Amino acid sequence: MKNFLLQNYLLLTYGVELLAALTGVMFYRKYKYSNAKYFIYFLVFIALAELASGYTNFIENDGVFSFLKGTVFEKNYWFGALYWSLGGILFYSYYFLKLLKSKSFVFVIKISRNFFLIFFIIYVLFNWNDYFIKPFPIIDILGAIIIFLSVIFYFIEILKSDVILTFYKSINFYIAVTIFVWWLIITPLVFFNVYYRHVDWNFIFLKWQIYLFANIIMY
């Protein structure tokens, strides 16, 4: 099992992402007049971004992008930070802003996402060299807080409205539950990145496993 997961990690990850994106496209007509259409756009965007981030696989062994070897773009940390650590948080906060009705909840999320965007830009500028060689735990933690706030506010509104009677029929409910659980599982891993960078292969494989199964379940 260990060798199978190691050899097929990327294939399995890309596979479930593409499957989710294609499923969204197939059912787009059903949701094109609802907020769920934005989620479908995001699924397609993430699938394409994940494929693009795989450019690092073509750097070694005189690959197509071998000219990037030895440059700051040799690793894809910078790209992942852009489309997921920043783009993912901005999208999900925007998505829940479309769902929330309470002005106070909307205000909190708007302020939080604006603060996050400004903090991200400033933090990256002050840690420019590290931006290309490692992830930033503080960015992931702040992003997770915004996700948790957004989902919790959404759940509170459901509980206070008649929607609670038919919540199981709403695709937004399943989206909220899924991303809440995913971030709850993944966020603690950022505290152990020191083991990842010091080539603790036991931890590296454990992290791959957690990400893989979390992604499969989420998608």
Rank of each mutant, 00 (worst) to 15 (best):
N114Q: 04
F120T: 13
T166A: 13
L90S: 03
N193A: 09
A47E: 10
H198W: 00
A21V: 07
E17K: 01
I179R: 07
V199E: 15
N193Y: 13
I185G: 07
Y168V: 07
Y92D: 06
I186F: 08
V194H: 14
Y41W: 14
L68Y: 06
Y41F: 13
F67K: 06
I118H: 01
Q209I: 14
L100W: 02
F136H: 06
R197C: 00
F73L: 15
G80M: 08
F192D: 05
N35D: 11
F148A: 14
K37L: 08
V194Q: 05
S102R: 12
D200I: 03
I185R: 05
N61F: 13
F136C: 01
L184H: 07
Y131N: 06
L99F: 01
F119Y: 13
F91D: 10
K75V: 03
A144V: 05
L43W: 13
Y55S: 11
K98W: 07
L5R: 04
W128R: 06
N172M: 03
F39Q: 04
G24E: 01
K69G: 10
I186P: 00
N215I: 04
L18A: 02
F173M: 05
F4H: 12
L11G: 06
S104G: 00
F153A: 11
D162Y: 09
L82C: 12
N61G: 04
N114W: 11
S102G: 12
K110L: 14
F39E: 04
K101F: 02
Y95E: 08
I138N: 11
N193E: 15
R113E: 11
G63R: 09
L11W: 09
Y92A: 06
M218S: 13
A81I: 06
K32R: 11
Y41C: 07
I158T: 04
S53P: 02
E157F: 02
S66T: 07
K98C: 11
T71P: 06
F45E: 03
N129L: 10
T13R: 01
L100F: 12
V124C: 09
T13P: 00
I121N: 01
M26Y: 15
W78V: 09
K160E: 13
L19V: 12
G70Y: 06
N35L: 04
S104V: 14
Y154W: 10
Y195W: 10
P188F: 07
Y33F: 12
L11V: 09
N61H: 14
I146F: 05
I139Q: 03
A20F: 15
A20G: 01
I109Y: 10
V64H: 09
F180V: 06
N61I: 05
L212A: 03
E60L: 12
L82M: 12
I138A: 12
N202M: 06
L212F: 07
V25L: 15
I152T: 15
I89C: 03
V194K: 12
F79S: 05
V72F: 09
N114G: 05
L100R: 08
T71S: 13
M26H: 10
F73H: 06
G87K: 02
A144M: 03
Y33K: 15
F42I: 11
V64D: 02
F96P: 06
I204V: 15
F119E: 00
Y168P: 04
F105E: 06
F45V: 00
A21T: 01
I46Y: 07
K207W: 11
I40Q: 09
F115K: 02
I156W: 15
Y9H: 12
F136Y: 08
F115G: 01
K32Y: 07
